[in-house]
Design a protein around this nucleic acid. Structure first.
Lengths: 232, 232
DNA sequence: CGCTCGCTTGAAAAATATCAAAATCTGTGG
DNA sequence: CCACAGATTTTGATATTTTTCAAGCGAGCG
């Protein structure tokens, strides 16, 4: 468990173009805010594969990932992966907009939406931070769209790996290897291709020695230049 | 010109599952807030095809569409269409995350980001409303992702037309016809297919009498049931 | 009138989807 | 520690679909 002090929301800061640490993520909540949220939060655990909530059901709680990876589905299609420091469970007209499921064993804070709203209404700083986080999610969703718009499976895969690597770095994790915690079918759904096409794309990149696959979860980029060139 | 009283942000309200007017959009800003923003906003116009700002350039202004349609590009790919009541120009690390271009003649409010931030910092209500709007954009982006994940061009097209119709209704415009204000190449880029594939998808739906195309901009759904069934 | 630009159509090439089956991995229990 | 059952992933062959390249159409405009 990474944070015992209360909910934590990480994001890159959306302003300051001259920011020295480009792309680094920061904790958006102050100690005080975290403490406030901690009072209404409880820690919950989900087993791998367990559903957290279903699309269309009445939204009662928001969640904040402490450890593990969550997959969000819209109508059978994977729309995002949520990592520690990410927030999910925001809703459309009071109902969840996605189905979420634990891709690995997950620990998370669970917070009643009503209480979150009450706190937000009285705390301008929190609002701004939530805005920052939402901007980040929006940018990620748009990057996902760019990825999905690619026509070749190998291109999609390199973009995906690049994105994962980038996020991993932003989270401060080592990036000698890319660590894919979700299974192949989730990745395929995220890329908008079949499991078979994904498998072949992996093989194609591997046989060209652009990447090496240590095991299903660990990938290394061998030829960075050629790897980046695939995205063209 | 639709709103002379100041910037307007429209969105569906994210809570209240029992909301009677499902999917209807509301004005998020109070008269007071609009007046406050109007003080820092100027009205600007863009000719059809004109670039509004470029991806990666330093972000200095946010925009609020008054009239017309704006296309947002990420790396050559269309990620969204912006209509009256939409907000754009929010940034990542101080630089614009997309390139935007007027798809039709556009009128918009232009507001210095620094001033917007100053107002946001002192106005919790605005914050909450911005959050609501960002949630909406996020949901749209995820719906776009679901669309892009479809494997057949005809399916993508029906989903797109359905989405446009839905948005049109939410804006309170008549929906006897679907009005596509952007050109075919923008639609194709949004769907992640080639112009030719889009053209063939239109022909396929037309020849099956699911839709009729009055002119390049106006489409009618003839067989609603079959039309909805395509999305399977 | 002749032009360009946006869109449509056609034919061949390339890529992915689909279906079926083999291989590999994971967790469980002996 | 090993063996087994079920789930996950890879591989193979074929069918579909889309991309690509090239040419034709048509509306709007100087």
């Amino acid at each position: 468990m990474k944070q015992a002090t209360g909910p934590a929301i990480y994001s890159v800061h959306p302003w300051d173009p001259g920011n020295p640490e480009k792309g680094a993520r920061h904790q958006l909540l102050s100690e005080d805010e975290r403490a406030k949220l901690a009072k209404i939060a409880q820690i919950v655990r989900f087993a791998k594969g367990q559903e957290i909530y279903a699309e269309g059901s009445v939204a009662q709680s928001a969640f904040n990932v402490i450890d593990g990876v969550v997959v969000a589905y819209n109508a059978e299609h994977v729309v995002s992966f949520l990592h520690p420091g990410d927030l999910f469970g925001l809703s459309e007209e009071g109902r969840y907009a996605s189905t979420t499921r634990a891709a690995t064993p997950v620990t998370a804070y669970k917070m009643p939406l009503a209480a979150v709203r009450r706190i937000l209404a009285n705390n301008a700083d929190l609002d701004v931070n939530l805005i920052i986080k939402l901007c980040e999610e929006l940018r990620l969703a748009q990057r996902h769209a760019v990825l999905l718009a690619q026509k070749k499976a190998a291109t999609k895969l390199t973009m995906f790996l690049g994105l994962q690597e980038h996020l991993q770095a932003a989270r401060g994790e080592p990036i000698s290897e890319i660590h894919l915690q979700m299974d192949r079918s989730s990745v395929a759904a995220y890329l908008g291709i079949t499991l078979e096409a994904l498998s072949r794309a992996f093989r194609s990149l591997t046989s060209k020695k652009l990447i090496s696959v240590r095991d299903r979860q660990h990938i290394t980029v061998l030829d960075r230049e050629a790897f980046n060139r695939v995205q063209a």
